[in-house]
Amino acid sequence: MASPAVDDYLKTIYHHTEWQDDRITPSQLAAELGLAPSSVTEMVQKLAAQGLVTHRPYGPIALTADGEQRAAAIIRRHRLIETWLVSEFDYSWDEVHDEAEVLEHALSDRLLEGIDVRLGRPLFDPHGDAIPDAAGHVHREPFVLLAEAEPGHAGRVLRVSDRDAEVLRAVEAAGVRVGAHVLVADASTLSIDGIDVPLPGAAIDAVWLTA
């Protein structure tokens, strides 16, 4: 079943466990995709029949090896395109997601490889999410969510979630960048170069630091 709809399901399941360990449930998947639970149940059954996911009624959903490989391939497309748009066309990091959603299904493998080469084969997209290589492998460092970091924790900003464009803009306005060295003053304040930077409340669940 080669289709954008299938890819969106696999991509959402893959993304759910990138930064935490709990597998996605059917209700969570329906909420993420904005679909009726009955539609999600039907599609998950089709994906299971194709050997792309494992699932038992009312239980969590997991990708099989084949499903993870296919999900990594579409995630790779999406994140390379985001990186390309920021690098080559001066898109801001809060603008690239919707554009990449369209382009990820349109670019040929040849063009995608050319983009990867031109960008120097980046390991991470503008938000800090890992870009899988052509074999589906990713590089990740140990991490901690800002909400769970203790005051006094020092590290680099690994990732800022792209789920909410408004939060992205607020975090950027505060001067927080992926790769910046920070010190946690409290859950809503980071110290950057000795200056305390207050963050919007939603940032505590949107910023990841090196552990």
Rank of each mutant, 00 (worst) to 15 (best):
V176M: 10
F124V: 10
A180I: 00
E88P: 12
R110F: 14
T54M: 11
I131V: 13
I192C: 15
I131H: 11
H105T: 02
A31G: 00
P126C: 00
T83K: 15
P4F: 01
D98W: 03
H153S: 14
M1A: 04
Y58C: 00
A73I: 01
Q20G: 03
W84H: 15
P198I: 01
E42A: 06
A36G: 09
I192K: 10
A48S: 15
E148V: 00
R156G: 10
R177I: 01
Y91P: 05
A203S: 13
P60V: 01
D205V: 10
R23H: 13
Q28E: 08
D205E: 14
S38A: 15
S87W: 12
G128C: 04
V44Q: 14
D66R: 13
E42P: 01
V96T: 14
Y9E: 08
E148G: 00
R169A: 07
V207S: 10
I115A: 13
H137R: 08
G114A: 08
L47A: 15
R140I: 06
P142D: 00
L47P: 14
R140S: 11
D196S: 10
V40D: 05
G194E: 09
I13F: 03
V144H: 02
P126W: 12
E141G: 00
G67Y: 07
W19R: 06
I195P: 01
V86C: 11
H181W: 02
G67M: 03
L52C: 09
I131Q: 15
I115K: 15
D193S: 14
I24S: 10
G34K: 02
A100H: 04
V160M: 08
Q28V: 01
A185P: 07
A185Q: 12
V86W: 08
P4W: 02
A149C: 05
R159T: 08
A71M: 03
W93C: 13
T64M: 06
H15L: 11
A135H: 05
V171K: 03
K46I: 15
A170K: 04
L10P: 09
L35N: 03
R140L: 08
V138G: 05
G120C: 09
Y14V: 09
G67C: 04
G67K: 02
F143V: 04
A165E: 09
G59T: 10
G59K: 15
D133A: 10
Y91C: 15
G34A: 00
A48N: 11
L29P: 09
H55Y: 15
M43F: 14
D7R: 03
R79L: 13
E166A: 06
V53S: 12
A65M: 11
A211I: 02
I204L: 06
D193Q: 12
E150W: 02
E166C: 02
T210E: 09
P126G: 01
G128S: 04
E101D: 12
I74L: 00
L183Y: 05
L158A: 07
A180F: 01
E104K: 06
I192S: 07
G194F: 06
P57L: 13
S108Q: 06
L35M: 11
A62E: 13
D98K: 04
D7E: 04
P57G: 13
V178P: 11
R76E: 03
V144W: 06
